[in-house]
């Protein structure tokens, strides 16, 4: 899984994809996840980081991330291999 490196993300949670011309808004956690992806972190690492910082069970994050990645993929913000 690889995030589209060109996308610009601002502090307000505004995301712009210059390749497609689409723009999006995301929340605080969404921004964190995208930053992790840009750094090339694995989903497992992201889950660990989030559970360390936030009051949440790993299993909840796992389910939410699955949905979030699906949305990122639908919006053509990540390219998943295989």
């Amino acid at each position: 899984m690889e995030i589209n490196k060109n996308i610009a993300i601002s502090d307000s949670g505004f995301i712009f994809n210059p390749t497609s011309g689409d723009s999006f808004s995301t929340n605080h956690i969404g921004m964190k996840v995208i930053h992790f992806l840009k750094e090339g972190q694995t989903p497992d690492h992201i889950i660990t980081s989030i559970t360390e910082e936030f009051d949440v069970e790993a299993q909840v994050v796992e389910k939410d991330l699955q949905d979030f990645f699906q949305m990122l993929e639908n919006y053509q913000l990540i390219i998943s291999h295989g």
């Binding site: 999006f24 808004s25 995301t26 956690i29 936030f54 909840v60 949305m71 990122l72």
Partner: peptide, 8 residues
């Protein structure tokens, strides 16, 4: 915690 969210 709030679940990650993105909208077009």
């Amino acid at each position: 915690y709030e679940r990650p969210f993105i909208q077009k």
